[in-house]
Amino acid sequence: MNVLTPAPASYADTDTGVLLSARGLTKVYDTGEVKVQALRGVDLDVRRGELLVMLGASGSGKSTLLNILGGLDRPTEGDVQFEGKSLTRRSDAGLTRYRRNHVGFIFQFYNLVPSLTARENVALVTEIARDPIPPEEALAMVGLSARLDHFPAELSGGEQQRVAVARAIAKRPALLFCDEPTGALDSKTGIQVLEALDHVNSELGATTVVITHNFGISEMSDRTIRLSDGRIVDVEEVGRAKKPADLSW
């Protein structure tokens, strides 16, 4: 629990299976009049291939943490290392490269491009990736082989989110960040999306970080951490207690 240990030169140790490592992360949002401390010193190691769930109420700092780990934001203090190299010292272009080459994102509201079909939304990412999965194959992994040429407006919410999953994994990312991936879905379609995530996590070995305030989802994780008031307050080894199909909320 949030114990500060002396930091080695490189604490994201590839040998020990740590892919992403954060030390002493703090984040203060300064709006001029008020200062909001979103993170208050977070240490975290994300292991290669694990499915990590971050639980927390809104305002607990989980989104801020995800933004920093995903290369969208920088901490006020502290450091993040990916495969042993610091992210926090990278330029904007460096962070763009990190996201482009190593990270997949899944948004709460899918964020598909409405003018592109399912296949083309995936192709959007595969065209700029180094060793992508063909869009058709990625969509097959999430069970959408029959909907390749549909536009987002022609797909249900669950289908749109599965396109987003396919889009995120098609570049074979080392890391997959999912921000409330089922937040906009009912439980039945939500489970379909979680099954898709579970499937690609085990199939491709992509390290997957899911943030949610839905406790139920934590039961499919390898490990669940809880955030509260900008700190990690609990880490639980869940060991994939349940299959997504057995979850309920």
């Binding site: 995903g70 969208l72 272009a93 763009t96 490269r97 996201r99 482009r100 080459n101 990270v103 994102f105 948004f107 964020n111 491009v113 409405p114 959007l124 990412v125 700029i128 889009r167 570049k171």
Partner: peptide, 16 residues
């Protein structure tokens, strides 16, 4: 803006 910002998150550069 939202569409373009999503693409930036997905790793598209400013130029792209």
């Amino acid at each position: 803006g939202r569409e373009l910002a999503s693409l930036r998150v997905l790793g598209f550069s400013e130029g792209e």
